[in-house]
Design a binder for these strands. Structure first.
Lengths: 172, 172
DNA sequence: GCTTATTGCACAGTATGCTGATGATCAGTA
DNA sequence: TACTGATCATCAGCATACTGTGCAATAAGC
């Protein structure tokens, strides 16, 4: 890696040439592949759910009655993005948006029977997708990759506009 | 995959609850933070470049005269995305699009003086961003994370619509 | 030389993500 | 109670990304 550019006239010879040394670039590529794999598996299984929609659906199923802001915090989405995602989930009949009795600003979200059924049927495809994006890694390497990503994410959580937020009053 | 749900009344009780076990979700979060960090550092440095625009600029500087399709393959962008990215780079005067003398379909891309200068001046901010997104990891862990991502990406390269392509005839 | 396949670029349409702003509402305080 | 600041949802606008489509030009096969 040691570049021998001492003899070169141009002052800007040690310019960046290989983006594969940049974690940011690698992150983009990995995510790009992850999304493509998810879409492919989903289509093969005959469903029409994006990764984002899937994550939202899981969160709503796990915490029925939560409002959109809490949902956003739970899965670290931007608040403004949630609106569209929930729109599309509702349009597909997988989720219901109902006015909150406690707060007239808020919408309570809950999963429908169809949503729950979809979540069940889709699980094998999701598993397959997660395996596919880790192919090329051994099981141990896969675990380590996830550990390192979790650690980096935890340290950088507050740096994005949509940090992860623990659910406070999960209406048990 | 053999589900043991015989004894359970609710067939769907082992539902997914923690997305932090899903590599796809972690990938999205890490990338989300990476982009946010990049934007923040760039703004602090007084520049207006997105991560994607930066990557394109680096590639064009490294391979002047390349066409858009080759650029796309070099940094694994989708062909249709490149159009807009180059548009914005050209609009900022960092890049020039000129008709290729060899192929009238193609546009040859080259970096301008302003583009080159920007690339130099921006480098410290880019370095800072890369460090910031890896904060929380030791140096060794950072290296390992990058190694694992590279390995996973190499194995999954062909799975996305925009795989990485080696430059064949880099006009040396 | 003519047909066919491929390639380079662009556009329409959809889905994320983000910044910044607005309207409605809530909660704490003077 | 009236005021103030936060909070929930939404919207407008910009920048990725992707699918699919189409056009023009080139390359390959015959």
């Amino acid at each position: 890696m040691l570049m021998i550019s001492i003899l070169v006239k141009l002052p800007w010879e040690n310019r960046v040439k290989d983006l594969n040394d940049k974690p940011g670039h690698l992150a983009r590529r990995f995510q790009q592949i992850a999304v493509a794999v998810f879409h492919a598996e989903m289509e093969e299984a005959g469903f029409d759910l994006t990764p984002v929609q899937y994550a939202a659906l899981v969160a709503i199923a796990a915490h029925p009655g939560l409002d959109q802001a809490t949902l956003a915090g739970t899965i670290a989405y931007d608040r403004t993005t949630i609106t569209g995602v929930v729109d599309r989930l509702a349009q597909k009949g997988l989720v219901v948006r109902s006015p909150s009795p406690r707060d007239r600003r808020a919408h309570e979200l809950s999963i429908t029977k169809a949503g729950d059924k979809t979540l069940q049927q889709i699980e094998p495809a999701v598993q397959a997708a997660q395996r596919a994006m880790m192919r090329g890694l051994t099981a141990a390497e896969g675990k380590e990759l996830m550990r390192l990503m979790r650690k980096a994410i935890a340290a950088g959580n507050e740096l994005s506009r949509a940090p992860m937020r623990e659910m406070a009053g999960a209406k048990s």
